[in-house]
Simulated scan of single mutants.
Amino acid sequence: YLKERVPEHDLVITDMGSGLNMRRKGFRRLLKMMLNNEVSKIVVAHQDRLVRFGFEILEEVCRAHGCEIVVLEKEDPEQELIEDLISILVSFSGGTRGHEREKVKKCVEELKN
């Protein structure tokens, strides 16, 4: 998806894992590159793929290092809040599997209605 949308970029860093996990190898690599002023633009499909919380802080640190973050797909603020709450609940329940996430999502949807 990113290679199609921004073909002029030559490096794509991928990670497996949640945006809640700050110890992902790709995220740490990207952070080091940014802090060493080795990157001028970070492009992500969705904001939460980079970090689930603290995006504004990361954005500010990027600016201080002459780096820009571009988010291609903006989310609806209400939907983003729901996804954040689901992530928190799944995280604290110790679950990360899809079926556990779907159970929590169903409960949140029921509460919403």
Rank of each mutant, 00 (worst) to 15 (best):
residue 70 V to T: 13
residue 16 M to T: 10
residue 26 G to R: 09
residue 22 M to T: 09
residue 97 R to T: 14
residue 48 D to W: 11
residue 53 F to H: 03
residue 13 I to N: 00
residue 93 S to F: 01
residue 27 F to A: 10
residue 78 E to L: 13
residue 63 R to H: 05
residue 42 I to H: 11
residue 17 G to W: 02
residue 29 R to I: 11
residue 58 L to N: 02
residue 12 V to I: 14
residue 65 H to P: 03
residue 11 L to A: 01
residue 81 L to V: 03
residue 13 I to Q: 02
residue 101 R to G: 05
residue 45 A to P: 00
residue 67 C to V: 08
residue 88 I to Y: 13
residue 46 H to C: 08
residue 56 E to K: 01
residue 52 R to Y: 06
residue 81 L to K: 15
residue 49 R to I: 07
residue 88 I to Q: 07
residue 97 R to S: 08
residue 11 L to R: 09
residue 68 E to M: 10
residue 63 R to F: 03
residue 47 Q to E: 15
residue 43 V to F: 00
residue 81 L to C: 07
residue 70 V to H: 13
residue 91 S to Q: 09
residue 24 R to A: 12
residue 102 E to V: 10
residue 52 R to I: 04
residue 75 E to L: 13
residue 77 P to R: 09
residue 43 V to W: 00
residue 49 R to K: 12
residue 73 E to V: 10
residue 64 A to K: 13
residue 86 I to H: 04
residue 84 D to Q: 14
residue 101 R to T: 09
residue 48 D to R: 12
residue 22 M to A: 13
residue 57 I to G: 04
residue 102 E to T: 10
residue 65 H to Q: 06
residue 21 N to I: 00
residue 99 H to S: 14
residue 76 D to C: 11
residue 49 R to T: 02
residue 92 F to T: 05
residue 72 L to Q: 09
residue 43 V to E: 00
residue 55 F to H: 03
residue 77 P to C: 11
residue 72 L to D: 11
residue 32 K to M: 12
residue 63 R to Y: 02
residue 102 E to A: 15
residue 83 E to V: 04
residue 31 L to T: 13
residue 90 V to P: 00
residue 77 P to H: 05
residue 15 D to K: 05
residue 50 L to E: 15
residue 23 R to E: 15
residue 75 E to V: 11
residue 89 L to M: 07
residue 93 S to Y: 05
residue 16 M to R: 08
residue 11 L to N: 04
residue 98 G to W: 15
residue 58 L to V: 00
residue 21 N to P: 04
residue 84 D to N: 12
residue 82 I to A: 09
residue 84 D to M: 14
residue 63 R to D: 01
residue 98 G to V: 13
residue 46 H to S: 12
residue 86 I to G: 06
residue 52 R to P: 01
residue 90 V to G: 05
residue 35 L to Y: 11
residue 61 V to G: 07
residue 19 G to F: 02
residue 33 M to E: 11
residue 74 K to L: 14
residue 38 E to K: 12
residue 47 Q to S: 14
residue 68 E to R: 11
residue 67 C to D: 12
residue 25 K to T: 07
residue 74 K to Y: 03
residue 55 F to N: 01
residue 87 S to K: 07
residue 42 I to M: 13
residue 97 R to Q: 07
residue 95 G to H: 09
residue 57 I to R: 06
residue 75 E to R: 15
residue 17 G to D: 06
residue 25 K to Q: 10
residue 80 E to I: 02
residue 28 R to S: 06
residue 29 R to L: 13
residue 34 M to Y: 02
residue 94 G to Y: 01
residue 49 R to D: 11
residue 11 L to D: 04
residue 26 G to M: 09
residue 92 F to N: 05
residue 26 G to A: 11
residue 13 I to L: 06
residue 12 V to H: 07
residue 36 N to V: 04
residue 81 L to W: 07
residue 56 E to R: 04
residue 61 V to Q: 09
residue 13 I to C: 01
residue 92 F to W: 12
residue 44 V to K: 01
residue 66 G to F: 00
residue 80 E to Y: 09
residue 49 R to H: 14
residue 90 V to C: 15
residue 34 M to I: 01
residue 28 R to G: 03
residue 27 F to H: 05
residue 52 R to N: 09
residue 19 G to K: 04
residue 46 H to L: 14
residue 12 V to G: 01
residue 21 N to A: 05
residue 102 E to F: 15
residue 33 M to N: 08
residue 54 G to W: 07
residue 11 L to H: 04
